[in-house]
């Protein structure tokens, strides 16, 4: 088994270590009953416990929306910012403090609509961030408006006769960006897979983009119902460099061996609509990582003063 492939058995070991999953939660999430965000929070807590991350050495940055309340519930530093703009803040933080583990949590409106410009460019900068797109196909906090990922024809308060455009496909879009280094998809109703995907994303050095399909019991209760009821509509992408978890093979009959290094196949699979696909679509550790390539040697205040004298010599009269 490769070091990245995850076994559910690993989770059992967590109990013996200093911090357990519950230590990473500060308060109960204030989401609606049945919201997929709870599952995402649980998976993240398990990851933090598994990695035994120090709460003061990590930061969760979010935008605005239901899912962006996430940092308030995690025992870590958090930045609950403005709509669509989590990525610039996270990038700046990572550049200033590369030793911190920085996670980004965004919703579909947040990331793929108002923050779409930042999403494209952060993907290209490829800073070492773990990025969760909690995609429930709808604007929830503002109460039921069409988002870019809302299925065509789906009715909302802003599209009472149904969304008029085909939904934007975040995987396809991310995979189209130069220097995209990690793109995966998972779903809140498959916790073992979500946990395994999160762990792979965390371990990847670079911009690890995970689209988490997330149920909204209020406004889009039925968008994922077919897949939830019938596991045969889902295909797992598996590979020795992918993610897997024991038990998943019993649940999902359809399994496709996909090498995450194969960008052409990744793009082809991302745009197909015949089945729902979960797994790592693409991963390449060799791409330039922004906070690494921009890192510079620290300079002491005294050295700076000496250097400034030389700069001023250029302008001396």
């Amino acid at each position: 088994m490769s070091s990245i492939a995850i076994s559910l058995l690993d989770i059992e070991d967590d109990a013996s270590e200093c911090l357990v999953a519950e230590d990473y939660q500060t308060r109960e999430g204030k989401w609606c009953a049945g919201c997929g965000d709870f599952g995402a929070l649980n998976a993240v807590k398990r990851l933090l416990a598994k990695e035994q991350l120090k709460p003061e050495k990590m930061a969760f940055v979010s935008g605005i929306g239901c899912s962006s309340r996430f940092p308030h519930y995690v025992n870590a530093y958090g930045f609950h910012g403005i709509h669509g703009r989590a990525l610039p803040i996270a990038t700046g933080l990572k550049l200033a403090r590369p030793e911190l583990d920085v996670f980004v949590v965004m919703g579909d409106g947040d990331c793929t609509s108002i923050g779409a410009g930042h999403w494209i460019h952060a993907t290209r900068y490829n800073p070492n961030l773990t990025v969760l797109l909690l995609d429930n196909n709808i604007y929830g906090l503002t109460k039921n408006q069409t988002s870019p990922t809302t299925p065509q024809g789906y009715k909302s308060n802003t599209s009472p006769r149904g969304s008029v455009l085909p939904a934007l496909n975040p995987l396809q879009a991310t995979l189209g960006v130069s220097n995209a280094s990690f793109v995966a998809q998972t779903a809140d109703w498959v916790p073992a897979h979500m946990y395994a995907t999160l762990q792979a994303a965390y371990q990847h050095t670079g911009f690890s983009f995970i689209r988490i399909l997330q149920r909204c019991p209020k406004f889009t209760p039925d968008v994922f119902q077919d897949q939830i009821k019938n596991p045969d509509l889902t295909e797992l992408l598996v590979h020795e460099d992918g993610v897997d978890a024991p038990g998943l093979e019993r649940l999902f009959k359809a399994r496709r061996v996909h090498d995450p290094k194969d960008i052409d196949e990744a793009r082809s699979l991302a745009q197909r609509t015949d089945m729902l696909r979960l797994g790592i679509f693409f991963r390449d550790d060799s791409f330039p990582v922004y906070d690494e390539i921009r890192s510079v040697r620290p300079v002491s205040p005294e050295e700076k003063v000496q250097g400034l004298e030389r700069e001023f010599d250029r302008y001396a009269v």
Binding site: R85, P88, I89, G92, L93, A96
Partner: peptide
């Protein structure tokens, strides 16, 4: 935003 993040 990047400046703010760095300052944070």
């Amino acid at each position: 935003g990047v400046a703010l993040g760095a300052s944070y």
